[in-house]
Structure formats: structure tokens, C-alpha cells
Design a protein around this nucleic acid. Structure first.
Lengths: 346, 346
DNA sequence: TTGTAGGCGTTATCAA
DNA sequence: TTGATAACGCCTACAA
């Protein structure tokens, strides 16, 4: 077991000074060709690589970015990470991940432990609990310390930083329009509680689409799932609610769900009740998932382009870190969604 | 924008030496109660936190572990990461992730950039390409440098290190047994090429189960998908192969798939052909996914317990790093699978 | 052309 | 009780 070799060791072995070695390895012309070659050959032989930690300490840059997300067992977030990682790696950065599990405390702890030198900047999607409590001191403090944050998806409007958002409202509107255009008149909305920004925005899109087509929104047709984690229990309870709503409103001919799990749950209810999709009921959902593609029938969905979001976020952050971008200007980028037509619509 | 405060600055402000500050913040009795309190109060006020990078350099420990996996947009790997992250955080470690995208080169690069001081140890699942080429020099070198590796799922037997494996063969056997017990006689196997270890082992389990029940394995009923990434195209081609096989063998009454995507693909073919599940055809798959739970019919699957694998791997690695475990002994832990019964079996 | 010295932030040892 | 010094590994301005 041989430890990694250091400049010091090379210097000792070759009987030169540390700085000579350092310069020689940078191919500096200060050093004679002879010694340069000798040192380079030796370094190569022993597979010398500069120690990242020492570099970080010296340069006050770690070349790593911290990614804080609510959960990772989730197709959308996994895609975003994948996009971040790709860009980060290509631009010489590493990626540390921290999971908040939607908990405020875990989010704070994660950020605090990384802030102390481990990372140069953050990319994050805010935990539901944080949004609910509206306590953003940890975010404000890191920004005040000169550590840039790029928020995506779950964004806090009050905080001044770069943001990548999905055009949730537009996407939802397009989805609902799609339903209306193929004949739906009574469209059930499956959404989240309002404090989840994206749920709220998608709800807004639903309302707007109806409005544009002079259809009045019926409160009876809006179900706000009381979920926090999409756990089995919560989905079961949603299922019962959907069932009840179908029973009370047997004229429902469309469903718009803010995520694919809700959509699949609706389809399950429909199947139980013998409602044919897409003949009697059409379904569209927001999503970025495998479920949509492989459910039966496959789901028409609003694609959020998770990978692209991740890539954009990483580029934005690294531009700032590498000082390609001005430190004091903040942009909000909107990633356009697109509708993927599958078999749950006519 | 106030930069993080350092010991030096505190020392200057309070007109004491750096080492006094350092000791006082550790509540060392060497320092008088008075100065201790003064310094602690000041540090608290300015929210002092030791710089991780400096600590890493000093201690030659980074308190972070590198996780190298083939992909992250994959339920199983996401679960494993989730398990790793949980344990790591609880034990004071951070997690850096690197994605190989199943590519040998990316795996090598990822490991090499992290080896230079950024991490204390690795948890990894080997890329398919690496397994195919059987070139493990990067792994051997890191181990030789005293950096421990814990492998999971896709494991290299020839390399001496800790390993966490799923009892693939047993799990597959249990799955196939389940099919046989509920009456299946002609069971189609959907698997991968042999160089993917887990595919091979699961295939073995299939063979063993048949053998135990004195059913002869029919090569016609074994489809080895020529996939590397489960891309759409590859799945389409698998679909056609399954279709052909069904046409040639109309007595198939069971399917065992080594992953849920293959299983869902088989169910799709069955649906097209009007084959009823589970009445005419029963399906079981290996998996750790959302698909199984929400497909129609929901799939009976072999649960791999991804989170537990991640937790076990992290504990094993950290035990070694924190020297709770002997550095020179290597264990291979087997995580038992369990069968989750759903609607695709009788 | 090569080497010395100081510093990045911290801790530990030893001296005052 | 406090402080100076060296060290972790690297880089660089400056001196020789």
C-alpha cells in the first residue's frame, strides 16, 4: 500500500526544492529543460497528481457544487441530477448531494455542513416543509456569505438568486387545452395543497384554460391531495376521494393531474369502475417519469425536461463561479415544457 | 457579503493568539474560564465554524465518500444512494456522486479525479463496459493506495474488497418456484447478456428452479436482450422478440423477467395478443421499482431492498474508515430478497 | 536556473 | 494560562 506521492517527496528523491518540482510539473520555462524532463519523468512514473484538498485550501475554491434536493427516489430529481452531473463533470466540477427528505431541519443541516468550505455553490430545490414554514434564514445567510445558490423547480420568489423554473402554468394550460380540444367539458383536477408552488401554478393553468374556453371551474372537480410524501397511505386516501368524486359527478370526462402518480391513481379508479380510457375519460398529467410511458394505457404527459433543467442550473452556477457571469446579476430562466401524446387521450 | 470568519480573525479582534482561540473553542481547560467564555461568545456571535477543507488537509481525512454508479435515473440506484446518504449523514460523512453511464472511461475518470484527496473511500457498482472489458486497473490502484472500496450489486469477484450482493440466484429461484407452484410449466425467461453478472445469476436461479422441479430448460424460452442501456430502441427490439417467441410457443404460461421493464414489456405483448394476466399468463420480475406497483396488473416482484443495500454499504465503508473494522479483512454481505405478491400471479 | 519564505485554516506540541 | 512553531500539500512572489 503506497500512499499518494507529494511534491515534497519528489523533491527529496531528486534532491531539488519543492518549488522547482512544482514549476517543472507546470512545464515552466524558468526551469532548465533537463531538470524539467527529469522531474516530469519521475512524476509520471510515480503517477503524481496534485492533492485536491491542498489546492482547495490554497485557491479557496473546491471545484465542487452542492446539490440539495428533497428526495432522490423520484424520476424528475434523478434526471435533474443527471443533467447537473454531466455539465459539472465536463466543466471540472464535482457534485455533492444532500437530501432534505422534505424536512426543514435536514435542509438546514445539509447546507450548514457544506457551507464550511466544502462547496463553492449550491443548486437546490426547496423542501416542502421549508416552503410551508417560510423560514429562509439559512438560504439568506449562505448567499450573504458570497456562496451563490441556483434554485430550480421549487423556488422561493422572495430570495434574490438565479432560478430555473418550469413554465408550470403554461404547461398545465396546454395540457388542459388539449383535453378541451378533444371534447372534454368536465375535467377533474388532481393537485397538491397550495403551499407547494408548482401545484399552485399548475392549478392556475387549469383555471386559465377553462376560463379561456368559457368553462366555469367547478370546486367539486378540484381535489387537493393532502400529501407530503406521496406515501402509500396518502395515495390510498386520494384514491378514495377520487372514487367519491366520480360517484357524485358521473359526467367527468377528463382528468388533469399534477403528477403521474395521481394520474395513474385516477386511471386505477376508472378501471375499477369500468370507465374506458380514452373513450369515456381522457387523462393528461404533469410528469417526467417512467410510469407514464409504461402504464396502461400510456399517459399523455407534460414533459418537464428534467435533464435540461439540471444542465441549465449547472451552467448558470458554474458561469458565476468561474466569473464568466457577473456576480451581482440574477437571472430566472424558464424551461419550456412540451406535451408528449400517448394513449390516454383521443 | 461577509466572508466566513477564521480563527486568525477572531484572534486579531480579541488580541489573543490563534492557538488560544483554537483551544478555547474546544473548551480546553488549559485556557482560563474568562478568556474561554469571551472567545466562545465572540465566535458564536460571528457564527464561527471550522473550515472543512483545512481540517481535511490537516487530518488527511475528508469525511466524504465517493459513490460511483452507472446511472441515477434508475429506481434501484436511487434507492441505494438514498440509503447511503442517510447513513453517511448520520455518521458525519458527505456523499459525492459520480455517474459512469455504463462507460469504462467515465468510470476511470470519475475515480481518478476523486482519488486525489477528495474522498476517503468508495462505494460503487461497476459499469457494464468495465465488466465486459474486464479491465480493473483503476480499482486495483485505488485499493493499493489504501482507499477502501465497497462494491454492491455489480461486483468483481477477482478484486479483494468488501462486497454487498443480492442473493440473485436465490431470489430468482424463489420467483420461478412461485410460478411453478401456481401451475406454470412453460416459463419464458427475459434476461440480459451473460457478462452482466446479475443477469447471469438470475438466469442460474431460473435454471435451478426448473431443475428442482424436473422441468427441462428450453433454450427457445430464454431471451437475452441485447441491451446496454434499456433504451427505447432496445426495448422495442425486445418486444418484437417476445412477440415472435409467443407465436412460436403458444403454450407459454409464465414469464420471469430480470427487471421490471422487461416484465412490463412482456405484459404489453400479452395485452396485444389478448392473453389474460394472471389467468393465462403469470408474470414475476426482479425489481425495485415504481413500475411494478403501478402497472396494470401490478407486478409480483422480487424486492432487492435497495435502501438496505445502500445502508449496509455505507456502514461497512465507514466502519473501515473510522477504524472500527480491521483494514485488512474483507466481508461479503448478502442481502436477502423477498417476494412481493401482487396481481400478476395467481 | 534554482531556492526560500509565506500563506491558505486548522491543530498539536512544546516553550514561555 | 497563553503563545510560538511546525505541519498537512500546494503555489508563487521574490531572492539568490
Amino acid at each position: 500500500m503506497k500512499r499518494k506521492i507529494t511534491l515534497k517527496q519528489i523533491a527529496r528523491e531528486l534532491d531539488v526544492s519543492i518549488s522547482t518540482v512544482s514549476k517543472a510539473l507546470k512545464d515552466s520555462k524558468e526551469i532548465s529543460k533537463d531538470t524539467r524532463q527529469k522531474i516530469q519523468a519521475f512524476a509520471k512514473l510515480y503517477n503524481y497528481r496534485p492533492n485536491n484538498i491542498a489546492l482547495s485550501l490554497k485557491n479557496r475554491k473546491t471545484k465542487t457544487i452542492g446539490v440539495i434536493i428533497p428526495e432522490i427516489v423520484h424520476h424528475f430529481f434523478a434526471k435533474v441530477i443527471s443533467g447537473i452531473e454531466q455539465v459539472a463533470n465536463a466543466r471540472g466540477y464535482n457534485v455533492i448531494i444532500g437530501l432534505s427528505n422534505e424536512s426543514f431541519d435536514k435542509e438546514v443541516i445539509n447546507i450548514e455542513t457544506l457551507v464550511n468550505g466544502s462547496i463553492d455553490g449550491f443548486i437546490m430545490s426547496v423542501a416542502k416543509e421549508t416552503l410551508q414554514q417560510q423560514d429562509y434564514h439559512h438560504l439568506i445567510e449562505t448567499i450573504n456569505q458570497g456562496i451563490p445558490i441556483v434554485m430550480f423547480d421549487r423556488v422561493v420568489n422572495d430570495i434574490l438568486c438565479d432560478k430555473i423554473i418550469v413554465d408550470d402554468t403554461e404547461g398545465a394550460k396546454a395540457a388542459v387545452n388539449r383535453l378541451i380540444e378533444s371534447g372534454c367539458k368536465r375535467i377533474l383536477l388532481l393537485t397538491t395543497k397550495d403551499y407547494v408552488n408548482v401545484g399552485k401554478l399548475r392549478t392556475l393553468g387549469y383555471i386559465e384554460a377553462l376560463h379561456e374556453h368559457k368553462i366555469e371551474a367547478d370546486p367539486q372537480l378540484i381535489i387537493k391531495a393532502k400529501d407530503t410524501h406521496s406515501s402509500d397511505k396518502e395515495i390510498d386516501s386520494l384514491e378514495r376521494e377520487i372514487e367519491k368524486t366520480f360517484e357524485k359527478n358521473n359526467d367527468i370526462d377528463g382528468v388533469f393531474a399534477v403528477n403521474e402518480l395521481y394520474a395513474v391513481t385516477a386511471m386505477k379508479v376508472a378501471r375499477k369502475k369500468g370507465i374506458k380510457i380514452p373513450e369515456d375519460l381522457q387523462v393528461v398529467s404533469f410528469s417526467d417519469g417512467v410510469l407514464s410511458k409504461h402504464s396502461f394505457p400510456s399517459l399523455t404527459t407534460v414533459d418537464q425536461h428534467g435533464t435540461e433543467i439540471g444542465e441549465t442550473a449547472a451552467n448558470l452556477l458554474i458561469d458565476k463561479l468561474d466569473e464568466i457571469e457577473d456576480e451581482e446579476s440574477f437571472t430566472t430562466k424558464i424551461i419550456k415544457t412540451s406535451l408528449i401524446e400517448r394513449d390516454s387521450t383521443k
